[in-house]
Design a protein around this nucleic acid. Structure first.
Lengths: 213, 213
DNA sequence: CGCTGAATTGAAAATCTTCAAGTCTAGTGG
DNA sequence: CCACTAGACTTGAAGATTTTCAATTCAGCG
């Protein structure tokens, strides 16, 4: 198995979040790391917000449920990325660990500057998401998604896809079957290679980028 | 003709932006109102940002161009709404007046609190946009779009659509023909009524909302 | 070794896009 | 006042893409 990053702590399972102190405080007071098993909820809609989380390792998914039972994935957060502050005093989404995940939480954001920087980054991310799913075809969306994921993991030769195909589908506004078929097509065209189902190697960056319009 | 709001100043045309002083300063220093004819550029990508704009009347569109010539509309801003600060020091999008429009500009945002509030509101709007175009079918997207527009114009019985069908299409990731057909279908089902091409009356709020999943 | 959930694949049906005519409407000029 | 025009909008039909439903295949785990 080749997954390079996200499964590093795969052995640490089923633990309800356990807090433990942690030294290197980057921005503010309450600094601790909690670990979550894959699939564990971090918060739910309606809970009061005000706490931020930085992903130490693993991956987090934000989503919401539509009234017909479908699910919309709002975003993914990888190691080093921050989430948890939303526009309201109250959370609008579900946050879940996708794989075993460590989160550093900040119950008091530092200066107004810090929180502003985070808000702007959050907006940038939302705009990038918009840019990807505003495209018309499934191939364009998935190519854009893969490039974004590669970029966020340092443009390594190969990288993890910690989320399931269904997560990707719900993120891109497609069905799981379409996602699967587009992956197959990209692989058949030698644009990507799947080292395993959830580990992608981009073989032709330029060609992939040209698909994103 | 029935357009209630956006064309109030339709007679004021072709003016290159003209600045004139204005008294009621809501937040900060440099306060003035500029008017733009429909179709006039407000700023372009690459310009340095730092100035905010509040729409006094009219409507503004943010968009960007894809490499294949297609256009993505990032958002619409109606009277009372604020735009212009983006994640970077530099604008990432085109901003254009859709109809004759008056903008109050703030070259120095007030306190950090003010700018943060605006950033959070901007993020909320981006998330709502995501929620709308993340849906799978054209009917769902347009129903969601109409409800959003109605909501932003005070849930009046009828409201303006200052933007063209093409603008709507580029906003929702659809073609102009699909937008037109869905409007026709909604009208045929008595969910909406078109008082004119760009003035919508929602006849069945609940039914429309139920289409949004 | 056989589960079980995830992922892939196939075929038919539904939806959307594309291309090609129209139609409508506001603005112009006779 | 009325035609005329240009641009926006609508509508039709064919083709392409995507979804849906169903059946396999695959991978990790007891």
């Amino acid at each position: 198995m080749n997954a390079p990053v996200a499964n590093a702590q795969a052995k640490m399972l089923n633990a309800t979040p356990i807090a433990f102190p942690c030294s290197s405080a980057p921005v503010t007071r309450v600094t601790q790391v909690q670990t979550y098993a894959g699939g564990k909820e971090i918060y739910t809609p309606g809970e009061k917000s005000g706490t931020f989380y930085e992903v130490e390792f693993g991956a987090v998914r934000l989503h919401r449920l539509l009234s017909d039972g479908r699910r919309q994935v709002i975003g993914f957060y990888l190691a080093g990325e921050t989430f948890g502050f939303e526009a309201d005093r109250t959370h609008a989404f579900f946050a879940e660990a996708i794989v075993p995940t460590g989160l550093r939480s900040f119950s008091q954001p530092g200066s107004g500057d810090d929180i502003l920087k985070l808000a702007l980054r959050g907006m940038l991310r939302a705009q990038e998401h918009l840019a990807v799913i505003g495209r018309q075809t499934a191939v364009e969306r998935i190519a854009g998604f893969l490039l974004d994921m590669a970029n966020r993991q340092g443009n390594l030769d190969h990288f993890d896809l910690p989320m399931s195909r269904l997560d990707i589908a719900d993120y891109l506004g497609l069905t799981i079957e379409t996602v699967s078929r587009v992956f197959a097509k990209l692989r058949a065209s030698n644009l990507i290679k799947l080292q395993s189902v959830r580990c992608v190697q981009i073989q032709d960056f330029k060609a992939l980028a040209s698909l994103c319009a």
